[in-house]
Simulated scan of single mutants.
Amino acid sequence: MLKYLRAFVLVGAVSQASCAGRLAEWAVDLERWRSNLEEKRTRVGEFEVAYLEGGHGPHALLIHGFGGDKEHWTRFARQLTDRYHVIAVDLPGFGESSRLEGLSYGPKEQADRIELFRMALGLEKMHVVGNSMGGMVAGVYTDQYQDRVLSLTLIDSGGIRSPEPSELSRELAQGRNPLVVETREDMDKLLAFNFYKQPFIPGLVVTKLYEASVPHREWNRRVFKEIHGKGTVVEEALPRIRVPILVMWGDKDRVIHVSATQTVQKIKPEAEIKILKDCGHAPMIERVDESSQIFMDFVDRRFPAPQ
Rank of each mutant, 00 (worst) to 15 (best):
K125M: 10
L204A: 14
A27M: 11
V44C: 05
R170P: 01
A120R: 13
K197W: 01
V9S: 14
Y210T: 05
V288A: 06
D253G: 00
D69Y: 05
I87L: 14
V258F: 00
V205C: 12
V247E: 03
I155A: 04
R75F: 12
F224P: 05
L52N: 04
R118G: 08
D143G: 03
V247M: 12
H59I: 09
L100C: 06
K230D: 14
E31W: 13
V11I: 15
G21T: 12
E38A: 11
E39Y: 00
A138K: 04
G65A: 07
E226T: 08
E48P: 00
L10S: 15
Q146S: 14
G139D: 07
V28N: 09
E31I: 09
D69C: 08
M136P: 06
L179Y: 04
G45A: 08
R43V: 06
E218K: 15
L168G: 01
V129S: 00
P244C: 14
H59Y: 09
H257Y: 07
I160T: 02
P283H: 09
W249Q: 01
V9M: 15
S169L: 06
E211P: 09
G280T: 03
P92L: 05
H127K: 10
M126W: 04
S169E: 14
A260V: 06
G122N: 08
V206W: 03
D82L: 13
K208N: 11
P202E: 14
G102K: 04
Q144R: 13
S104R: 11
L179H: 05
E182C: 09
K208G: 07
